[in-house]
């Protein structure tokens, strides 16, 4: 069948692609655009491994059609680091060993970015609820939360002991 032409801004660059209606944004990012950092854990909106920021909102890219990306601005995990420099969120995830297998990590980092964009000073409870849609089989979440609270403080210019 005919494919639809879609043009979007992905990680600050204009991007054009052809996609079929049933392809999700996650399919398109991974298989058409070649950005394989976003992961497919469930394809049903439950795990958050596919999280991206679309027009300022955190969404599961597996629950967005590729064709819906027309005219949108999208940030994926590949757009988080600043050139060769890790984003502070990425740095703190490493320092706190907030990952083991790493499959959930792109989604968690993108979700954390969206959280801190909206709320630079979250309570631990707020951070836990915000990240409730990001499942991790390995870490038990605590190290993730430590990393998130630490990086939030650092980005606010506070140093924690």
């Amino acid at each position: 069948m005919a494919k639809t032409y879609v043009s979007a801004t992905i990680n600050g660059e204009s991007s054009e692609f052809l996609c079929e209606t049933q392809q999700t944004l996650l399919d398109v990012l991974r298989d058409v655009v070649g950005l394989t950092g976003s992961k497919e854990g469930c394809a049903s909106g439950d795990c958050g491994a596919c999280s991206v920021i679309m027009d300022g909102r955190l969404v599961c890219s597996c629950l967005v059609l590729g064709v819906e990306a027309e005219g949108k601005t999208i940030t994926t995990i590949e757009g988080i680091a600043q050139g060769d420099h890790l984003h502070p969120i990425q740095q703190k995830f490493l320092e706190h060993a907030a990952l083991q297998c790493g499959f959930c990590t792109p989604g968690l980092i993108v979700a954390t970015k969206a959280l801190l964009d909206e709320n630079p000073n979250p309570t631990e409870t707020e951070a836990r609820y915000w990240l409730a849609g990001n499942l991790c089989r390995c870490t038990g979440y605590d190290k993730v939360i430590r990393a998130v609270m630490d990086v939030a403080a650092e980005m606010r210019g506070e140093t924690v002991g």
């Binding site: 909106g45 958050g48 999280s51 679309m54 909102r57 955190l58 969404v59 599961c60 629950l63 967005v64 979700a111 969206a114 959280l115 609820y129 915000w130 990240l131 409730a132 849609g133 990001n134």
Partner: peptide, 9 residues
């Protein structure tokens, strides 16, 4: 309903 991600939609 759902997570932060689902709330976005």
């Amino acid at each position: 309903i759902g997570s932060t991600q689902v709330q976005g939609r």
